[in-house]
């Protein structure tokens, strides 16, 4: 017995038992270093880079503090416009996804028979099976103003532009909205809906007063996905946006000649995202996820 008790392992175990803080620190060390090294630190470096400048000819980084990048960003109306447009696209995509995802999830979770549910989920996820580029190029063929699928079938196509961008991004990110909303709907106890009906509420009222408030956190979770994914996208807009341009394209155009300015533009999306998450937190939805 005594030999076991004095083995290093046992002593270590004993130490951890007595020192709860060390135990937690040990458990969290790995995930925290992942978080800090791969998420927080790069963001901090991005932010720092945004205050540097480059040599005007060779494009080499000059590590001298300047706020000129942000000044340019906030004084040139072009960049404010592009930021607002990007925000507009992200909001539009999120709203369309919400409008589409609620009835689809409702059907999948509460109307379809349990036998069909796995199949429906699989079908809903099919857009995620194909390569992003293949899908967007396919949409290019659909929207093409000359001889595109829409144009040759219906004689009308909105062509390449913001409409096409919102439609394609909605198509791409819809599964990310449906999944959490579907799970949220499924977790609402049937008894609550029955009680609402027993007390005389119509289906519409039950939906509005019982179901919707209960799945609200799921809607918010889905919206974080669709909003942030749309905010950062720059390839869809290149392929189906015609001459349209989003914040990601500005980063793409600037990063090799003017890394600090690209970093300043990229911080803009981070700032928008922090604003969005703060707004979401105020609703309390994150506490109930």
């Amino acid at each position: 017995m005594s030999s076991v008790a004095s083995s290093p392992v046992r002593r270590w175990q004993g130490y951890l038992h007595r020192h709860g803080g060390m135990r937690i620190a040990g458990l969290l060390a790995l995930p925290m270093s992942w978080l800090v090294l791969l998420y927080i630190l790069p963001l901090a470096m991005l932010f720092v880079t945004a205050f540097w400048t480059t040599d005007s000819f060779t494009g080499e980084l000059v590590r001298a503090f300047t706020t000129e990048n942000f000044q340019r960003l906030f004084t040139d109306p072009a960049y404010i416009t592009v930021a607002l447009r990007t925000l507009g696209v992200a909001v539009a995509v999120t709203l369309v996804c919400l409008v589409l995802a609620v009835p689809i999830s409702l059907f999948m979770a509460r109307v379809a028979s349990p036998r069909w549910q796995p199949l429906l989920i699989a079908l809903m996820l099919t857009p995620l099976w194909a390569s992003y580029l293949v899908k967007v190029y396919a949409w290019r063929v659909i929207f093409s103003p000359e001889g595109g699928v829409l144009e040759s079938t219906f004689g009308f196509s909105p062509g390449f532009g913001w409409v096409a961008v919102v439609v394609v991004l909605t198509y791409l990110w819809l599964p990310y909205m449906i999944l959490p909303v579907y799970v949220g709907m499924q977790n609402v106890p049937q008894s609550l809906l029955d009680a609402s009906a027993d007390l005389g509420a119509s289906s519409a009222k039950t939906f509005r007063r019982v179901l919707l408030p209960m799945v609200f956190p799921s809607l918010v979770a889905g919206s974080i996905f669709t909003f942030s994914l749309s905010l950062g996208d720059y390839i869809t807009v290149q392929l189906v946006g015609g001459k349209a341009q989003m914040l990601g394209n500005v980063v793409y155009q600037s990063f090799s000649t003017d890394l600090p300015f690209a970093a300043a533009v990229a911080s803009m999306t981070v700032i928008i995202m922090i604003g969005y998450l703060t707004a979401v937190r105020r609703t309390g939805a994150l506490d109930n996820l």
Binding site: T54, F57, A78, Y79, V82, Q245, N249, D258
Partner: peptide, 12 residues
């Protein structure tokens, strides 16, 4: 560098 800056601004 200013060519790129003006181009980016123009495109935006």
């Amino acid at each position: 560098k200013d060519w790129v800056a003006s181009w980016t601004s123009l495109r935006s």
